[in-house]
């Protein structure tokens, strides 16, 4: 399996990233190198092996559905580039 420019263009779209032509070429090359190498995984027999999402078995944690008021809302909003009436302001969502 090789990674081509078209694949990287598609991945960029999925990840909400934009690249110049030069960047596309460079990322295509490095991703192709990396996956050529990672293909060695296909040699490993994994029949009947269950996948591990975590290193240590984890159990679901349940908590009471309590409301804890957050007091530093202004400090949170200070990190936003554009605020209006205590709301995060963004450019228009629907475009022509």
């Amino acid at each position: 399996m090789t990674i081509d420019k078209k694949t990287v263009e598609h991945l960029a779209k999925l990840s909400r990233l934009r690249f110049s032509d030069n960047e596309l070429v460079s990322f295509t090359k490095s991703l192709d190198d990396i996956f050529q190498y990672a293909n060695s995984l296909q040699k490993v027999n994994t029949d009947g092996i269950s996948p591990s999402a975590h290193a240590i078995p984890l159990q679901n944690v349940f908590k009471e559905d309590e409301v804890i008021t957050y007091k530093d809302i202004d400090k949170l909003l200070d990190n936003c580039a554009d605020v209006e009436n205590h709301c995060f302001k963004v450019p228009r969502i629907l475009t022509n």
Partner: peptide
């Protein structure tokens, strides 16, 4: 770019803003 972190200020639409801010 919406709630915190770098935001491109020139973008005209939400998707543009996200893509340019991340890029």
């Amino acid at each position: 770019g919406v709630r915190y972190g770098y935001r491109n200020q020139e973008a005209k639409s939400l998707v543009d803003m996200m893509e340019l801010s991340r890029s």
